[in-house]
Amino acid sequence: MSDEIVLDVQDVAKTYRVGFFRKRVDAVKAVSFQIRRGEIFGLVGPNGAGKSTTIKMITGLVRPDRGQVRIFGMPSTRVAARARMGFLPENPNLYPHLKAGELMRFYGGLLGLSRKESDARAERLLEQVGLGHALDRPISKFSKGMKQRAGIAQALLGDPEFVVLDEPQSGLDPIGRREIRDLVVDLRRQGKTILFCSHILPDVEDICDRVTLVHQGQVRETGYIHELLNPDVLRYELFARRWTPELTDTLGDRVLQRFDIGEVSRVDLRGDIDLEETLALIASAGARVESLQPQKQRLEDVFIRDTSDTTETSEARP
């Protein structure tokens, strides 16, 4: 990773006006972050937090009320900036009357590619996103997941250095989700920079280098994944046979909770116990440990902690 800043979002804000009375909705109140070349950068936050609005300001579809966005040092309103960027909108809608091949040809034309170049790239990309068989099918007959895949293909058609993906895995089956995850990692391997907005936190945790968590239009936290997550063990999850109530008493407050599932007991132990001593006690009581899993803090835990001040969505409030 180099120090070159690919994307610089400087304190942007956006207020929408809705309805007849032009009621204010503060979609984004104050968001800033920077993405460096070669990074996979995660953008997470609850529904209505302002992620997609931020992304629309990045891609030049929405003009910020305040602040500015720079891509490769240029404002995103500049064509030269957008020529180096690929964008997958949230739940992309593509032209229903076009066939997949024609669709790619259309986008190829917008990118200024020659017909030959565009067709060659389209074939490769559609194959890559698993639509190689659907070249002659109209988009209107595509399933939700297929549309999502076609959307990804069009985002990559211009061979962009910077790729913005707004919920690329929504509507995909588990295999598709995994494929997209692998695709993103692969894009980075090709030297691309990626902004990855997703609700699938385990994937964000796995593939992103840094994340920004937005809530109610504001950045709650930005940092490297490993810095955001507490490295300590929070608790141990243990499965054992021949567990006895007496053993629970012996272990005292080391046991957080216990469930018996037929022959097997699931016991949650505190994370700060002396593991060896505890295991010795368990063994001497005649119980047989079948599995022991240390549980560390997940991105999900951070997410829930940082956004728990509201119950439903993080809808902007007047």
């Binding site: 629309k56 030049g60 064509v79 030269a80």
Partner: peptide, 14 residues
């Protein structure tokens, strides 16, 4: 209305 414009105006199209 169908939001296809998102995929168009985010390209190098003025």
């Amino acid at each position: 209305d169908s939001k296809t414009i998102f995929t168009v105006l985010s390209k190098p199209v003025t």
